[in-house]
C-alpha cells in the first residue's frame, strides 16, 4: 500500500489521539508517544499539521517495511 495522502483525516485522528491504534512500527510508536502529547499541549492547526508531517514522513520513508504496511492497513483499512 502506498502511504495515503496527508490530507486523509486518519492522520489527524492519529496525532490528536482521537483514535488509538495497535501499531507495530517502532519508530512511529516512539514518535507518536511525543506527538500526541505535543498536540494535547498545543492543539493549534499549525502544530497538528507539523505533527502529521513528521509521522507521515516516518511512514513514507519506511514504506517497504512489513510493519509499516501492517500499520497502514490498521489505520486506513
Amino acid at each position: 500500500m502506498d502511504v495515503p495522502s496527508m490530507s486523509r483525516p486518519q492522520w489527524t485522528d492519529l496525532v490528536t489521539g482521537k483514535k488509538t491504534y495497535q501499531l507495530k512500527f517502532l519508530a512511529a510508536k516512539i514518535l507518536l508517544g511525543r506527538l500526541v502529547h505535543s498536540v494535547k499541549e498545543n492543539p493549534t492547526p499549525a502544530n497538528i499539521k507539523s505533527c502529521i508531517e513528521q509521522v507521515y514522513n516516518v511512514y513514507a520513508k519506511n514504506a517497504g517495511s512489513p510493519s509499516v504496511q501492517e500499520d497502514l492497513t490498521t489505520i486506513f483499512g
Binding site: 488509538t20 495497535q22 501499531l23 517502532l26 510508536k29 516512539i30 508517544g33 500526541v36
Partner: peptide
Amino acid sequence: ADYYGALV
C-alpha cells in the same frame, strides 16, 4: 513510559 504502546 508508554510511548503509544512501546514501553520505554
